[in-house]
């Protein structure tokens, strides 16, 4: 998909140019606010990928469409990467702003759980010799995990308001200026096209791998047939 490749590279290049050179530093956070241009789009994509994965899994279970399984499976590592980026860049942003690498607040904890869910999905999808079974088990997990994301967010919210004063964490959303919004959106769309680009690559890979398995199976069958005749 050359057009996906071109738009991904173009959008991210434009987003980086605007974000690193042309957007002003924040009046409170200074230049550290530029971390936002990777952090926020990555966090959005982390949630988007999980939604896509759960949706594809549900579609695969309901309509038994093989391509939906392939899409869900190909999405998992991309979503895990975005979640990792969001966690790591958030940590690097938190250190200068809040004075700590990590806080057990609602946002961070639910993102961490999302990362675990991705990892669990990937491991489960690879844990069976029987392909069909691996796909279906992983699909059930993706759907069950989707229910958990809002629950986690809500429960940790409550947990924290009781135990931790929301002093450090309350970054009053700097009413965002167009000069900051533009690079943010460019990066977000660039990340989205990156997702579709890599998704296409991974799905093509999976489909070809499926063809290889089918060819091997047919050959094994015909050899067995030759021998018996």
């Amino acid at each position: 998909m050359p057009w996906l490749q071109r738009s991904t590279l173009g959008l991210i290049a434009a987003g980086l140019t605007l974000g690193l050179f042309l957007s002003p530093p924040d009046y409170q956070q200074g230049d550290s606010v530029r971390i936002m241009y990777v952090h926020v789009p990555a966090a959005w994509m982390a949630l988007f990928c999980y939604t896509a994965m759960a949706g594809a899994s549900a579609a695969a279970l309901v309509w038994r469409h093989a391509l939906a399984h392939v899409a869900a499976r190909a999405t998992a590592p991309i979503g895990a990467s975005f979640t990792f980026i969001a966690l790591a860049s958030g940590s690097l942003w938190g250190k200068p702003m809040w004075g700590t690498w990590w806080v057990w607040d609602a946002r961070l904890t639910s993102m961490l759980v999302l990362f675990f869910l991705y990892l669990g999905y990937i491991v489960l999808a690879g844990a069976f010799d029987d392909r069909e079974r691996a796909q279906k088990s992983a699909a059930v997990l993706a759907i069950v995990g989707f229910v958990n994301v809002p629950i986690i967010k809500f429960s940790v919210d409550w947990w924290n308001t009781l135990h931790q004063p929301a002093s450090v964490l309350k970054i009053d959303g700097p009413s965002i200026d167009p000069s900051m919004l533009a690079p943010l959106l460019l990066m977000a769309i660039g990340f989205a096209t990156y997702y579709f680009w890599v998704l296409a690559i991974r799905m093509q890979d999976e489909i070809m791998a499926g063809k290889i398995r089918a060819l091997r199976l047919r050959r094994a069958e015909s050899e067995a047939g030759d021998r018996s005749s």
Binding site: V113, F116, L117, G120, L124, G145, N148, S155, V156
Partner: peptide, 14 residues
């Protein structure tokens, strides 16, 4: 454990 522990976090919290 990898599958169930993340799902059990709400129960743990409350």
């Amino acid at each position: 454990s990898l599958l169930v522990l993340p799902l059990a976090i709400p129960v743990l919290i409350f």
